[in-house]
């Protein structure tokens, strides 16, 4: 985790990955703010984790399974507030 400053190009690349459209001003602000946050986060380098395993969750539960069951109240025709168009389909932009 060497010292990391985010360049303008990297910010633009990240915004594309995240599907966010940023203004010029936002690109500049996020560039400096995220770099500042990353330089704070650099302190983690001090910690020796070579013999430590990851913790992604703390429940210690394993393989929680359940029968599949159909719930009528979640059927698409009852989904008020959804942008359901004709015949219970969603309309999306055409892929070019």
């Amino acid at each position: 985790m060497a010292k990391k400053t985010l360049t303008k190009e990297e910010i633009i690349h990240l915004s594309k990955l995240a599907n966010l459209s940023l203004t010029e001003e936002e690109i500049e602000i996020y560039g400096s703010q995220l770099s500042e946050i990353l330089s704070y986060i650099e302190q983690l380098e001090e910690v020796d984790t070579s013999k430590v395993s990851s913790t992604a969750q703390v429940t210690e539960l394993k393989n929680v399974t359940e029968e599949d069951e159909v719930k009528e109240e979640r059927s698409i025709k009852d989904l008020a507030g959804l942008k359901v168009n004709k015949d219970n389909y969603f309309t999306v932009k055409r892929i070019r």
């Binding site: 983690l44 910690v47 984790t49 430590v52 913790t55 992604a56």
Partner: peptide, 8 residues
């Protein structure tokens, strides 16, 4: 790295 420090 963060998930490992989380363990500690």
């Amino acid at each position: 790295k963060a998930t490992k420090v989380r363990t500690l």
